[in-house]
Design a protein around this nucleic acid. Structure first.
Lengths: 364, 364
DNA sequence: CTGAAAGCGCTTACAG
DNA sequence: CTGAAAGCGCTTACAG
C-alpha cells in the first residue's frame, strides 16, 4: 500500500497560482526572455509555495542541450582515472555541466556501447580514453553527428579531435635515459601490451621506424621511449628484459617481474609502465628480497600516495593527472560552446621525473 | 563556417520511410505494445537505413523513468569511493541503469545542490554517502517526492531508508582490542573528527553512553569503538592520544602523528582511522625513523594496494568495498522496481582484521 | 495488430 | 512585457 506521492508541481501549476501564462512563468524561472518585476515576483512566490523545480529533462528535449558531458574511463578504479575524474568534474561543474560516467575496462565493445548510451542520453560532449587508438569510428560518428569528443590520455591519428595527453614516448625516454646515465645496461620493462598485435612489438617498433603517437597506446608509446633511449645510447635491447603481461593485471606483473629476476643475467634496473604494473612488480621485488636500489634500481610511471611510503621511496615519472582532467573538460566545454571553434588537436602536458631513493648506479 | 550537421533522424522519419504510423514505429523499436512481424521488419530496416537512435530523453519525459541512478560520493578520488563506484556501476549497468556521479567533498551544501541537480535530472534513485548523518532533510524530501535513496557507508536515524554500511564501532573495537590483547596500554588514534561538534568528542562519547550508529559519522563510530575497547578492558583513555585533525587531510594527519610521537610518553601503538589518515600518519612514522612494529604497532582501516608493499606490511581492517557498492546498487534497483517494497533499513557488511607485520607486543 | 490523437513538461517563435 | 499556440521526440490510452 504505497503512500500516494503528490504529483510534482509543473510549470502550468505555477503559472496558474501566479495568475500568468505558462510562457511567462517559464521566462521568470528559466532566465530566458524578459518579464516584469511584478510577474517575476509572483511567479517566484508561487514556485516556492508549490516547491516547484524545473524538469530539466523536458527542457532538454526542447532546447537540445542537456548540460551534461559523458566520460568514458578505461578503468574507473585506478588512481589515475579517479583523480582525472575529479579534475574533469570540478571544471565541468564550474561551467554548469554534470558528468555521466561510464567505464570501458579497456574493452572496445563496452566503449562502443558507452558511446551509444551517451548519445542516446543526448550528452553535449564526450571525454573518452579510447581503448584502441586505431578503432575510433564510433567516436568519429559521434563527432559528425554533432557531439564533440575530447580524447583523454591517448590520441588517435584517425580522429580529428582535441586530445589531452602526455608524450609517453618522451617520458619513458627520459626515465630510461637516466637509468642508462647511471650506468645501467640491463634494464627491464614491465608492461601490459595487451593488444594481440603488441605481442609482436619488435616487428613494428623496430629501430628507425618513427611511429606517430596517434597510432600507439600508452603502453606502446612508453615502450617506444624505452627502446629509443637504448638505441640513442648504443645500448642493445634484450628481448628477455621486455616483460609483457598481455593484460592490465597486477598479478601478471608480479609473475613477469619474478621471471625477469630469475633470468640467468637478471636486470640491474626496471622501468614499470603504470600504476598496476608497479603494484604487481614491486610486490615481486619485495618478495624476492632484492635490495633496492643496491641490487636493482626502480623507476615507475605515476606518482601515487604510497610512492614515498615504501622503502626506499620510489623514483617516478609524475603526470599532472588532475590538470589533465581539468584541461580535457575545459577543451570540451569550449568546443560545446562554439562548435566552429579553432582546429582541434592534441595538448601535450609535461611530466616530471622525480628522483627519490629507488635509483642508483648498478652494482659492479 | 561550421559544417551543417544533418539532423538526426526521428521516429516520424523512420515511420515515413517504413510506411507506417509513428506509433507503430515506436512500438517496433521500443519493445512495448505489439506489432506484426512484417511491420517490425520494415521499421527496423528503415531505422537502420536512417541510422536512427531513440532519443532517450524524450522517452523519459513521457515515461517518467530515466534508467539513471544518481551517486553522491563524499570523495570521488579516494580508493574507497573509486572501488565502491565500480561496484555500483557494474550492478547498475547489469540492470540497465546508468550512473550520474557527483561529489560532495563532505560538504553539506554541495550535497544539497547535488540532490537538487539529480532530482531535476529526474534520476530514478539516489545512492548517497551523506556528509552529515544528522542533516538529511534534503534526502528525506527526495524520498517523499518519490525518488528512493540508499545511504552508503553511513546510516542516519533520521531517514527511513536503506543503508549499506559497516559497523565502524565494532570494527574499531576489534582492532583496538587486539592491540590491547597484545599488551598495549598507550594506543593513539588519528582521526579527522572534522565536524565542529566532534571537537568535544569526550562530552558525548562518554562511558556509559550508548549512541546509535545512525547518529555517528564513520569517524565517530570508529572513535567509539576505540573508546569501548579501552573501557571494556579497563584501560584508561588518555586524551592526548586521541589525535584529531579536524579535516580530511593527509598533511594534518602527518602533523598529528608527529605530535603524538613527540609526547613525553609516546604511544606504543596507533590506530589509523581511514585511508587518508593512514597516508599522512604513516609518512610521519617513517620520517621519524621509528621502528614498526618494534617501537610502534600500527593498525589501519581499509586494505589498499600498497598495504603489503610497505615494510613492514600493514595490519588492516578490510572492508568489502566493491561488494558494498554492489549491494547498495542492488538495494536501490530493487526499490526502484517496487516502491512499496519491504521496510527499508541498514545492511551491515562484515569486516576482516588482517594481521600482517605491523603489529606486535609493545617494547618492555 | 494498427493509426490518429493527446500528452509528458518544458521553450520558442509570433503577434499584440 | 505578455499570452496563445506550436513544437521538441517520444509513449500511451483509445478506437477500430
Amino acid at each position: 500500500m504505497p503512500v500516494s506521492r503528490q504529483r510534482r508541481a509543473t510549470l502550468p501549476d505555477v503559472a496558474a497560482l501566479a495568475g500568468v501564462s505558462t510562457a511567462a512563468a517559464g521566462r521568470a524561472l528559466g532566465g530566458y526572455g524578459s518579464v516584469s518585476e511584478d510577474v517575476k515576483r509572483r511567479v517566484l512566490d508561487a514556485a516556492e509555495k508549490l516547491n516547484y523545480r524545473t524538469n530539466r529533462l523536458a527542457a532538454s528535449v526542447r532546447t537540445g542541450r542537456t548540460d551534461t558531458i559523458g566520460v568514458i574511463c578505461a578503468d574507473i578504479e585506478s588512481p589515475f582515472f579517479a583523480r582525472a575524474l575529479r579534475g574533469i568534474s570540478d571544471v565541468a561543474h564550474s561551467h554548469g555541466f554534470s558528468t555521466l560516467v561510464t567505464n570501458s575496462d579497456e574493452d572496445l565493445t563496452s566503449e562502443r556501447n558507452a558511446v551509444q548510451l551517451l548519445l542516446d542520453k543526448q550528452v553535449d560532449g564526450i571525454i573518452c580514453a579510447p581503448a584502441d587508438v586505431r578503432q575510433v569510428a564510433h567516436l568519429a560518428q559521434a563527432q559528425s553527428s554533432g557531439t564533440p569528443v575530447v580524447l583523454f590520455d591517448r590520441m588517435s591519428d584517425e580522429l580529428d579531435a582535441d586530445a589531452v595527453i602526455v608524450d609517453g614516448a618522451k617520458a619513458a625516454y627520459q626515465a630510461v635515459s637516466r637509468l642508462i646515465a647511471l650506468g645501467h645496461r640491463r634494464i627491464a620493462i614491465v608492461t601490459e601490451l595487451r593488444q594481440p598485435r603488441e605481442q609482436d612489438w619488435a616487428a613494428y617498433l623496430t629501430r628507425g621506424s618513427e611511429p606517430s603517437l596517434g597510432t600507439l597506446s600508452p603502453s606502446e608509446a612508453r615502450l617506444l621511449g624505452y627502446l629509443r633511449a637504448h638505441w640513442d645510447a648504443g645500448v642493445p635491447v634484450r628481448r628477455e628484459l621486455v616483460r609483457r603481461t598481455g593484460a592490465y593485471e597486477a598479478d601478471s606483473a608480479y609473475k613477469q617481474m619474478k621471471r625477469a629476476l630469475a633470468l640467468k643475467r637478471p636486470p640491474t634496473a626496471v622501468f614499470l609502465v603504470d600504476n598496476l604494473m608497479t603494484v604487481g612488480a614491486y610486490h615481486a621485488i619485495r618478495d624476492s628480497g632484492i635490495a633496492v636500489p643496491r641490487e636493482l634500481s626502480v623507476v615507475a610511471f605515476d606518482d601515487l600516495d604510497w610512492s614515498v611510503l615504501v622503502s626506499p621511496a620510489l623514483t617516478v615519472i609524475a603526470q599532472p593527472v588532475y590538470e589533465m582532467g581539468a584541461e580535457a573538460a575545459r577543451r570540451l566545454v569550449a568546443r560545446i560552446g562554439d562548435r566552429g571553434a579553432p582546429a582541434p588537436g592534441p595538448t601535450f602536458m609535461d611530466v616530471t621525473l622525480i628522483e627519490r631513493e629507488s635509483t642508483a648506479p648498478p652494482p659492479d
